[in-house]
């Protein structure tokens, strides 16, 4: 079980260096292993901050996060965060550490699963927004791990594609934290629990 207990967090003001108004305060959440949990809420409520805390990119000011020790956490960031100077294939392979043959086989498989085979060797700059989103999903699948954090993962994908991609993500990850504005997407992922951040 991954537990977030009474977590508080505020960003530092980049000019004064002082803490600003807390983004999260006394926030708690449990993510049981093998389940999909959804976090919703309007903009600026701390959804992405929660993802950053779980990824270890920020440290909570108060409270604690447990259950992640020694675990591998993958992510589809809210922004694609792709290496735009590389092709789709190289962006996916960049997170792999296996042998060249293993990496190539897994990359090809994920390119197929995200329906990117045709665009595999094109530079990222030449891909549409939806294709770039799928590269970002394929990269997260390639990294693998015990938990995947999906921050608005289906942004820019059409409904048909969403329906085909989601089961492929669910097949590879049992434990999921989905951050979304959309109740339909939460349903599509089959979230067992939905937490609203207000």
């Amino acid at each position: 079980m991954i537990s977030v207990k009474n977590v508080g967090f505020a960003y530092k003001n980049s000019v004064t260096g002082e803490k600003e108004k807390p983004v999260l305060s006394g926030f708690s959440l449990d993510i049981p292993e093998g389940s999909a949990v959804c976090v919703t809420g309007s903009s600026g409520r701390g959804k992405t901050t929660l993802a950053k805390l779980l990824l270890g990119l920020e440290k909570p000011d108060s409270g604690e996060i447990s259950g992640l020790e020694g675990k591998r956490v993958s992510v589809v960031f809210q922004e694609d965060r792709l290496l735009t100077w590389y092709s789709a294939r190289r962006n996916i392979a960049a997170v792999l550490t296996g042998s060249r043959a293993e990496n190539a086989a897994l990359t090809d498989e994920l390119l197929r699963e995200t329906e990117l085979t045709e665009a595999a060797d094109k530079p990222i700059r030449e891909l549409s927004g939806g294709m770039q989103r799928r590269v970002s999903i394929a990269r997260a699948l390639a990294f693998g791990g015990d938990l995947i954090i999906l921050d608005e993962p289906l942004k820019g994908l059409d409904e048909e594609l969403k329906r085909r991609i989601v089961p492929r993500i669910r097949k590879r990850f049992k434990t999921i934290l989905l951050i979304t504005h959309s109740a339909d997407e939460a349903k599509l992922f089959g979230c067992e629990k939905t937490i609203k951040l207000d």
């Binding site: 956490v73 992510v75 922004e79 965060r81 997170v95």
Partner: peptide, 12 residues
């Protein structure tokens, strides 16, 4: 910095 965070998360 977002790419550096990405590199950190994916253990580059």
């Amino acid at each position: 910095p977002q790419l550096l965070e990405m590199a950190k998360v994916f253990r580059f």
